[in-house]
């Protein structure tokens, strides 16, 4: 399973006959970018003001090079006034999420359509990480208000034909008891929690570990960056004797930005919903694939609060060589090295 079917679904291509190539995907992406720039110019007070200030004419964007000349959106812009980003009426917003870090507190808003779309995207992402019909998934994330991450995951697993159980008590003993009684095939949780939980299990209950036979561990990351190193991944893999899948998502982009496939050669970008660039953090210039720099993302599929050329502060590299999984269309990013 790869992200190709998700992208093809969204591009409305014939799944059997039409092979998705990079060229086709780029054509699609460019169209989406042109549309989103026009859309935010018309609907979002923030972008209208920003683009007028910089003399941006949305009609004049012809290629990716033109797009890369657009001004950046900074976290501080959203912190200053998130409502100016809205392209719909506030009454159309179903859920707001809060992100807080050194760049200030930011509210990110989603419409109902967007949340449903996120569930769909999450379902495809989970299937890439070995989720099959009938699987049980232990979701070790805190329960939030309605439409929180826990619920998005639970719903995505259900849509894929599995059963997701949220175990939001992060005490190791309770997590282990739950693993023993649920016998899930997949465990999802924040990187540090999964790491220390694994260490604790190995130290105290090695025999239980062997009986559990997980198929996959999926790593989620909270909004506070913490490195997930190769050593940590290898340790978790060795302890559970299963595959470990990393994932990258930020609230500003609707969580589902990139997902690792079974080839484990980087995370495939969800190019239905985001367009990624890597820039030199000092000069703002676009960097070639393979060169380390700051990840800049554009949400190409949002109606409520699209964000264009958003500087994430996350340092990584774009990978554009074909992946062993057979997906030759989507680009990938490396594990995030650090956050500026």
């Amino acid at each position: 399973m790869s992200l190709i079917s998700w992208i093809q679904n969204n591009m409305r291509m014939d799944l059997q006959d039409d092979k998705l190539t990079r060229e086709k995907l780029e054509k699609y992406l460019l169209l989406k970018l042109k549309n989103i720039v026009k859309y935010v110019y018309e609907k979002s007070p923030f972008y209208r003001e920003l683009y007028r200030k910089y003399g941006v004419k949305p009609d004049r964007i012809r290629d990716f090079k033109d797009f890369s000349k657009l001004p950046f959106t900074l976290p501080s812009h959203i912190a200053d006034n998130p409502y100016r980003f809205l392209c719909v009426s506030q009454s159309d917003i179903l859920r707001g999420f809060t992100v807080e870090d050194v760049n200030g507190m930011r509210r990110i808003f989603f419409t109902e359509n967007e949340l449903i779309h996120i569930v769909e995207a999450t379902m495809f992402g989970l299937r890439v990480a070995n989720l099959d019909r009938g699987d049980v998934v232990q979701i070790a994330v805190p329960k939030e208000a309605e439409w929180g991450i826990h619920q998005i995951l639970e719903e995505a697993v259900r849509k894929a034909g599995g059963k997701g159980v949220v175990v939001d008590e992060l005490e190791f003993k309770i997590q282990l008891q739950s693993l023993e009684s649920l016998r899930p095939q997949i465990l999802i949780g924040p990187a540090l929690h999964i790491f220390y939980f694994s260490e604790w299990c190995e130290e105290n209950f090695p025999s239980i570990l062997r009986r559990l036979r997980l198929k996959s561990v999926i790593i989620s990351h909270g909004c506070v960056f913490y490195p997930f190193t190769d050593l940590m991944r290898e340790e978790i893999r060795n302890i559970w004797e299963c595959e470990v899948f990393d994932h990258y998502g930020i609230t500003e982009m609707g969580f589902t930005v990139a997902m690792e496939c079974p080839a484990h050669e980087g995370m495939h970008l969800n190019e239905v919903d985001v367009y990624a660039e890597v820039i030199d953090p000092n000069t703002g210039e676009i960097l070639e694939p393979g060169v380390e720099g700051e990840l800049v993302l554009t949400s190409t599929n949002r109606e409520g609060m699209p964000i264009v050329r958003y500087r994430t502060g996350d340092i990584t590299r774009l990978i554009d060589r074909p992946c062993q999984c057979g997906d030759v269309a989507t680009r990938r990013i490396e594990n995030i090295k650090y956050r500026l």
Binding site: L192, E199, P227, T229, L231, M232
Partner: peptide, 9 residues
């Protein structure tokens, strides 16, 4: 430098 890597190494 990382505590987690340290306890593994």
């Amino acid at each position: 430098p990382l505590f987690e890597d340290y306890i593994i190494m």
